[in-house]
Design a protein around this nucleic acid. Structure first.
Lengths: 334, 334
DNA sequence: GTGAAAGCGCTAACAG
DNA sequence: CTGTTAGCGCTTTCAC
């Protein structure tokens, strides 16, 4: 157990070549004769040689590790997105390093600190409810791409955003077309995308000459249940509810059912994200689908550009969303 | 941007001390005068010094990175478990590195290869459906702890197992007590824990003088739906179904509802894991709760022991499960 | 094409 | 308690 790994020197010696040439050969550097390269490769394989990433990182003063900071691990949508990013990162030659334990306060800072110590190549932030200042700080200390809406006031951070406004509009027009007017909205927490959606809801309602009726909670099922209780405490309950995300919508569906209200007969519900569960026939949730693949692709490419310092002026990428109509929405009873 | 990070030498120079002493001070090594330590710490903080983990790893020839290989990222239970492990690892001074993209074939091997290049301290495998041989190979190349059942024939791998047998027995006794005799079972895929549960089901049925009636699929909702179709194609459908995990159970519930069957009036359903969704009133699933915290704790401690080479003979840890009774189980109709 | 040699930032003996 | 020094494994000039 004294020397479990063979080194470049071992390989060089065994191949009868110099370390320099061995290094070049193994890395695919052009300046090596094909037969030499092949020979070295064979010897390396034989010795079970594995490059020591730490040594490589030390000499090049940066590693290929890229952190993925998941905003909410309990949200299947974040997991799906993270998976796509993981894959895209791998394809681009990075070492993805996902962090799940972002629940504790200040852990994002801790996580970034760890990435900094690792001399990570960059970090991808998934819809974290971080303050704009915190995101700025991170972006300043290492290449960073943020997925999710971001207040326009922060142009120095590269953000991949989904078109929240258009999504909300699609959903609302769907409900209007169905004949709804008493449309309530349950919003999310501190994430900028939650704010955007709530804002868009208010806009659309006002445009239609209707009074916005909304509450803000957090992006989880519990908040959805709670929201229903509050919404239905009024004497003029809504006939449709637009949720800021699917988890919230699932909570709404759950409570509605618990109260003996039928969906969509008594109340229509629309979500946002299209998480896997949403398609279940128990829920069959009408929702707004995001293209996670595309988001991941764009995010990784944007990160690469920041790292290469070839970042274009386009520091904001907006991707479309698409309405998926299922059983949870229908015409109002009256 | 030529030198974004200050080094130990910078700190030493600024503090008027030697690198050795600076290193010791910053690491909390005993041989440093308190005031010296403080002074160095202050200077380091001032300079925004961050130890280069790569350099540290290089000289000590191993890093503190520990990989977490999630078996199925789409299973909330795995995510929850991974989160607990992440936290436990962090608390033990390791750098957790979770991998989500384990869906592709052979990716576990790739992932391990990456960890090896990183000279990772170890790896924790979450209920992967890896072959016994693959797990053995991994365990041989770096410290490894497996969470989930493992065939007894592989004593060289340290495994943290939940008491599947006792869990199944609890569930079955609950159903027996309710009056069920036509109890079917939907099993999981290649993971050893799935096999264990199916095996236990058969045992208990036979003990009760009943004929086992089961199908095996995979640990996901789709498989559950499909299983229901097959189970109810017979002229003597079951009055209760024991699912190998909650995802499967959720799929069962979903299809049952789609077929117009009431739960638990027409059919009782019991799951395994107690994922967050299981408690929703839409599902209200009777299931077997696992103590993820405890599992994580034990896993990290076991890993530590392997690394320190103080591993005891106890290479197998079995943790209890507890039946949580909810609305999805009740007496049969007849 | 190829090789020799100079470090990357840090820890761990070894001396004082 | 403190400082000097020798590498850890690798990439990278710079010669040949």
């Amino acid at each position: 157990m004294t020397k479990p790994f063979s080194t470049l020197i071992d390989v060089a010696r065994a191949a009868g070549k110099s370390v320099a040439q061995t290094s070049r050969a193994l890395r695919g550097d052009p300046g090596v004769r094909p037969e030499t390269r092949e020979h070295i490769a064979k010897v390396a394989a034989q010795l079970g040689y594995r490059p020591n990433l730490a040594a490589r990182s030390l000499v090049s003063s940066q590693s290929s590790i890229v952190g993925i900071l998941i905003g909410d691990p309990n949200n299947p949508f974040h997991i799906e997105l993270a998976q796509c990013i993981d894959r895209a990162l791998l394809a681009a030659g990075f070492e993805p390093m996902t962090t799940l334990s972002l629940s504790e306060p200040g852990s994002a800072t801790n996580e970034v600190e760890r990435l900094l110590r690792l001399r990570a190549a960059g970090v991808i932030l998934l819809a974290n409810s971080l303050t704009a200042k915190a995101i700025d700080d991170i972006a300043q200390s290492l290449p960073c791409v943020y997925l999710g809406s971001l207040r326009v006031s922060h142009p120095q951070v590269t953000a991949i955003t989904v078109d929240d406004k258009s999504g909300v509009r699609q959903a609302m027009e769907h409900l209007f077309a169905l004949g709804h007017t008493r449309i309530a909205h349950l919003g999310g927490g501190a994430e900028a995308s939650a704010r955007e959606r709530t804002k868009a809801y208010c806009e659309v309602m006002k445009e239609a000459g209707l009074e916005p009726n909304y509450l803000r909670g957090t992006h989880d099922a519990a908040s959805g249940r709670c929201g229903v209780d509050m919404l239905f405490a009024s004497e003029q309950p809504p006939t449709a509810i637009l949720a800021s995300n699917d988890l919230l919508a699932l909570g709404i569906l759950d409570r509605l059912r618990g109260m003996g209200l039928a969906v969509p007969e008594d109340v229509s519900v629309v979500g946002f994200d299209d998480i896997p569960h949403a398609g279940n026939s128990v829920f069959s949730l009408t929702t707004l689908r995001q293209d996670t693949q595309a988001q991941a692709q764009v995010a990784v490419q944007a990160l690469q550009e920041i790292i290469d310092d070839t970042a274009k002026r386009t520091r904001r990428h907006v991707l479309p969303v698409e309405l998926v109509t299922r059983q949870s929405s229908g015409p109002p009873k009256t």
